[in-house]
């Protein structure tokens, strides 16, 4: 086992790429997964692996096959073709073993409206042999003052935080989040991101689906873009964006008229335009803005209103699927 080392390129959310040498088998292995509903092919020949300790995301529009994929891996659905291994076993055959080892949050799944927060945790804790102390979980998820509140009265963000708590109650090594942040306001979404990062930092592997491109870009170590049942791209967000070969732009306003020839000689710069006091510099590489600012400072050129335009995962999605992300 130790000999069969695998190398996976992962990156942290701080955008620095690091290399993990993984000596164990992947946590999830999917090969040629296919699932058909009537005449609709929901998932069509999908293969990928998820490694220990990463946040793996599947992005795509509604109906792209994300939920079907995640639910096949969770063992909730039986695939028509292909093989799935979770911790090395077939989730369909070892369903009870898998249910004990993984945590799930299902898309659009609610709880009984009159069930109180503490009762939900107490109930779900009773399903497992050695559950976590749910009082602590409540505290970690900021729900302590909601412990006696009925599920129906919770806000959208609180409901999802409770769902996270229920997914973590058995201290799983692998956690699934299916459209966790759908329907939440931007602030609640950011809270979810922080919580997911905290969960990952405690050593767990996370598999999530989302239809928010910014979420996938900022949160996931690796992203699989799904379209019409197929994975059309799979890599780190950085690599996906770089593979586009699209250049970054820096736009700024000069405080006083000045010649900006110093910018033309910078490495990687492909275009410099000046229109009155407005300046546009276009070029390759993440460091473009730093180089431009340094060059201007060295010349003593003062400027304001600096903006950068960088390609993002949305551009990648458009490029690989040929259509816009729409809900």
């Amino acid at each position: 086992m130790l000999g069969a080392g695998r190398i996976a390129v992962l990156s942290t959310n701080t955008k620095t790429t690091r290399i993990f040498k993984l000596v164990s088998e992947p946590v999830i292995q999917v090969e040629h997964l296919r699932k058909v509903y009537g005449s609709t092919i929901a998932v069509d020949d999908v293969s990928f692996e998820v490694y220990q300790g990463e946040i793996f995301g599947m992005v795509g529009t509604n109906g792209a096959g994300k939920t079907t994929s995640i639910e096949c891996i969770e063992g909730l659905r039986q695939q028509d073709r292909g093989s799935i291994r979770v911790f090395g076993v077939d989730p369909q055959k070892e369903i009870h073993d898998i249910r004990r080892k993984v945590g799930v949050q299902l898309q659009e799944s609610q709880l009984q409206p009159r069930l109180k927060v503490w009762e939900a945790l107490d109930l779900f804790a009773s399903f497992y042999e050695s559950p976590l102390d749910w009082e602590k979980l409540l505290e970690q998820l900021g729900l302590t003052d909601k412990r006696n509140t009925a599920f129906a009265v919770l806000s959208g963000g609180q409901k999802q935080r409770l769902q996270i708590a229920l997914a973590l109650i058995n201290d799983p090594q692998l956690v699934f989040f299916d459209e966790l942040t759908t329907g939440l306001d931007p602030q609640a979404r950011r809270t979810m991101w922080d919580l997911i990062r905290t969960v990952r930092d405690s050593g767990k592997t996370i598999f999530l689906t989302t239809h928010f491109m910014d979420e996938a870009e900022r949160l996931c170590d690796r992203v699989a873009i799904m379209d019409k049942g197929k994975i059309v791209a799979l890599d780190t967000p950085e690599n996906l964006i770089q593979s586009l070969g699209v250049e970054s732009r820096v736009v700024l306003t000069l405080k006083e008229p000045h010649d900006i020839a110093c910018c033309r000689s910078l490495s990687g710069v492909t275009l410099v335009e000046q229109n009155g006091d407005r300046v546009l510099v276009q070029g390759k590489g993440e460091m473009l803005v730093v180089e431009v600012v340094t060059a201007l400072a060295k010349e003593g050129i003062r400027f304001s209103d600096l903006r950068t335009e960088q390609p993002n995962l949305e551009d990648v999605f458009l490029a690989v699927t040929g259509h816009e992300m729409k809900d």
Binding site: E74, L76, R99, R100, L106, L111, Y128
Partner: peptide, 8 residues
């Protein structure tokens, strides 16, 4: 569905 996804 949620209960079905537990070891019950």
């Amino acid at each position: 569905r949620r209960l079905h996804a537990t070891p019950l």
